[in-house]
Design a protein around this nucleic acid. Structure first.
Length: 589
DNA sequence: ATTAGGG
DNA sequence: CCCTAAT
């Protein structure tokens, strides 16, 4: 958009005026510019909005609560993260991600080791950034501050040892505090109009800038005045936390850093008219803030959390009492054991039909119909309706049926470009191309004999990217397959593309756990992995479990020198130690 | 919808 | 990661 658009803005004032107004009116949270820019170009952070998100997130990871012996510096980490995030966010070309993943981790590892190359690193990310924000508008929309948002709103609350970061945090605070951003209010007392009247264009522009956080080239006094007045009005409606609220009691007053931390936070989220914080973001922030000030089940041991409050007792108790959830055997096993329930069209004996994945197709996609046609022999997957047995492969996403039955051409129309939905997401919205699917399914021959067994784990890595490239590599399941097809069919089991966890992700996870608590996966996801489309809350949970496992090994290793060969992608000991702490703490229950 | 746990 | 059961 850059030049052309900007020009456009300048020229078509009236039009834009309308846009602007309607934007604001429709949703005060949508700023004129961000409305254009908001296409997830840079992702969003719950607290920072655009661009800075990752920086903040990563920033606060880096020097959060844990005491990593290596004591990586701020720059190290944020650069590492930036690098990663940037790369990741350019997502589009997924293939590159994978390719890069390893490099990334290596780089980060390097950084961790204190190896050099950091500078290039920073430069790299900076270049990335600037590449991204290469146009004025984005730059403006990105915010008052183009520098890295290295402050750690979380970390600050609890990291007395992160001295090295203090200075930076102050900077960050200053940046966010941006004293001028408050000056606007001085116009808000009713005399504003005359005041505005007397101002020079230059001043008006200035005021405009202060109010909307961007410069304007428009020299039309009226226009500027209107804008500013509008801004003034608007700012009045936005909730503005009082200072006391902002610096509020949630932080240990004795802890200067905590204060500065919170100040930074609040200034960041303080909804000045120019960058209003959408409700949900504010909400998330509240959650976090609450969690921080109220680190219930989560206050980490030795993590330096300054405030372990009593209010959390209840929750913690419930945590302690928590009993291991007992799993009864999965239904499919039960069904295998139990006699087949009576059916209209009785199943032929001797052909026990597991129906694991049916669910995926039947219950989730065809459910509406299935219910109507219940008992109807025509119904596709009615287990009793045919004497065959279809065992849809595990994880075989619905669209595979598409592939199965439709000319690939159509599939390719749907698949690319769109953000790859996770498998589970696909499971949730299986009806992606609804009509089509159903028709297809219906048309599929009722007498399929397909058995596609669970694929051994080994095939994982080759399956990378299979999701997106599927149209090329898909294994077309023959329409008729002998019942005892070889169990080793490649590519039948479609898993989510395996994306290695990067160190920064791990750190974020740890940070999340330490502040929100083990088990708060969805919260952590929302707060710290909001931009990572490929990490679901379940993934977080799984990863945590693995980390805990790893950390346990660490301990074992300490005891007997049974040094388990360090896995290639093993997280650094320091990280694992932190995991251990958190795990231990929780393990008390 | 989330979370826990088995695989 | 996937899958399923419990909440």
């Amino acid at each position: 958009m850059s030049n052309a658009a900007v020009k456009d803005v300048t020229l078509n004032m009236d039009e834009n005026d309308n846009i602007f107004r309607s934007c604001l009116e429709a949703d005060r949270h949508v700023s004129f510019l961000t409305a254009f820019e908001e296409e997830e170009v840079v992702g969003q952070h719950p607290f920072l909005g655009t661009a800075c998100s990752r920086d903040l997130a990563s920033g606060h990871l880096a020097f959060g609560t844990y005491e990593l012996p290596n004591c990586f510096g701020v720059e190290n980490f944020s650069s590492g993260f930036e690098y990663e995030e940037m790369t990741l966010d350019q997502d589009a070309g997924d293939s590159t991600i994978v390719a890069d993943t390893k490099a990334k981790t290596e780089i980060i590892d390097e950084v961790l080791q204190g190896t050099d190359g950091r500078t290039e690193h920073v430069e790299g990310s900076a270049a990335c950034l600037s590449g991204k924000c290469d146009n004025e508008v984005v730059n403006e929309a990105v915010g008052i501050d183009n520098g890295p948002c290295v402050d750690s709103f979380v970390g600050q609350t609890s990291s007395p040892q992160s001295e090295s970061t203090e200075g930076r945090d102050c900077i960050a605070v200053e940046q966010y505090m941006h004293p001028e951003s408050c000056t606007l209010t001085e116009y808000g007392d009713g005399r504003e109009f005359s005041q505005l009247d007397q101002m020079t264009v230059r001043k008006l522009q200035d005021a405009f800038k202060k109010m909307f956080g961007r410069e304007t080239k428009i020299r039309d006094k009226q226009w500027l005045k209107r804008r500013i007045l509008f801004g003034i009005q608007n700012s009045g409606e936005v909730h503005k936390p009082s200072n006391s609220e902002v610096l509020g009691a949630s932080f240990d007053e004795n802890d200067g850093k905590s204060l500065s931390g919170s100040a930074a936070v609040s200034s960041v989220i303080s909804p000045c008219p120019l960058k209003p914080v959408p409700d949900h973001e504010a909400e998330l922030f509240e959650e976090m803030k609450q969690s921080i000030s109220n680190p219930s089940a989560n206050s980490s041991p030795g993590g330096g959390e300054s405030c372990i409050s009593l209010q959390c007792k209840e929750e913690r108790d419930s945590d302690l009492v928590k009993v291991k959830r007992v799993h009864k055997p999965p239904r499919r096993y039960i069904e295998e054991t139990i006699e087949v329930k009576p059916q209209r069209t009785p199943k032929k004996p001797g052909l026990p039909c597991k129906r694991p994945r049916e669910k995926l197709v039947d219950e989730k996609i065809l459910k509406p119909q299935e219910e109507k046609v219940d008992g109807n022999p025509q119904s596709l997957h009615q287990s009793g309706s045919f004497d065959g047995c279809i065992q849809v492969p595990f994880g075989l996403p619905v669209e595979d049926e598409n592939v199965l039955e439709t000319p690939p051409i159509k599939v390719s129309n749907i698949a690319p470009k769109v953000h790859r939905p996770t498998v589970s997401a696909m499971r949730r919205q299986p009806a992606a191309p609804p009509g089509k699917l159903q028709i297809i399914s219906k048309s599929s021959p009722p007498k399929l004999h397909v058995i596609i067994p669970k694929e051994p784990q080994a095939t994982r890595s080759p399956m990378r990217n299979v999701r997106r490239q599927r149209k090329h590599h898909d294994v077309i399941i023959p329409k008729e397959v002998p019942i005892n097809t070889s169990p080793i069919q490649k590519g039948t089991r479609r898993r989510k593309h395996h994306i290695s966890w990067t160190l920064s992700e791990v750190m974020r996870l740890i940070e999340g756990v330490s502040h929100l608590g083990v088990g708060r996966w969805s919260k952590i996801k929302r707060l710290l992995f909001a931009t990572s489309k490929h990490r679901t809350s379940v993934d977080l949970k799984d990863k945590w479990r693995n980390l805990v496992k790893a950390s346990a090994h660490l301990r074992r290793k300490k005891k007997g020198m049974q040094a388990r060969k360090p896995l290639t992608h093993q997280a650094p000991e320091s990280v694992l130690r932190r995991v251990q702490e958190l795990a231990d703490y929780r393990g008390l229950s």
